[in-house]
Amino acid sequence: MKRRATALATLLLTGAGLGMLTVPAEAAPAAPTRTTAVCPTGWGSTQKTGTSAATASLVNIRTGRHDCFDRMVFHVPGVGSSKIGYRVGYVSRLYQDGSGNHIPVAGGAVLEVRVAAPGYDPDTGKATYAGKVNKPLPGVNLTGYRTFKDTRFAGSFEGDTQIGIGVRARLPFRVLQLPDRLVVDVAHTWGTAR
Rank of each mutant, 00 (worst) to 15 (best):
T6Q: 09
A9I: 14
T10Q: 09
L13M: 12
T14E: 00
G17Q: 07
L18W: 14
L18K: 00
M20C: 11
M20E: 15
T22L: 13
V23R: 12
A28P: 02
A30Y: 05
P40W: 00
T41R: 13
T46C: 03
A53I: 03
A53M: 11
A54Y: 12
T55D: 13
V59H: 02
R62Q: 12
R65L: 08
F69A: 13
R71E: 10
R71P: 04
V73R: 00
F74W: 12
V76P: 04
V79P: 04
S81P: 02
K83Y: 05
K83D: 09
I84M: 04
R87M: 10
R87T: 14
Y95T: 14
G100V: 10
N101G: 11
N101R: 15
H102R: 15
G107I: 12
A109G: 06
V110H: 07
V110L: 11
E112H: 07
E112Y: 01
V113T: 07
A117F: 04
A117S: 05
P118A: 06
D121G: 04
D121W: 03
P122D: 09
P122G: 08
K126P: 00
Y129F: 15
G131S: 06
V133C: 00
V133F: 00
P136N: 05
L137E: 06
P138N: 08
G139R: 08
V140D: 13
L142D: 03
L142K: 13
Y145N: 06
F148C: 11
K149S: 07
K149E: 06
T151G: 07
R152H: 10
A154G: 03
G164P: 05
Q177W: 05
Q177C: 05
L178R: 15
P179K: 09
D180E: 11
V183S: 01
V186S: 08
W190C: 01
G191D: 13
T192N: 12
T192V: 15
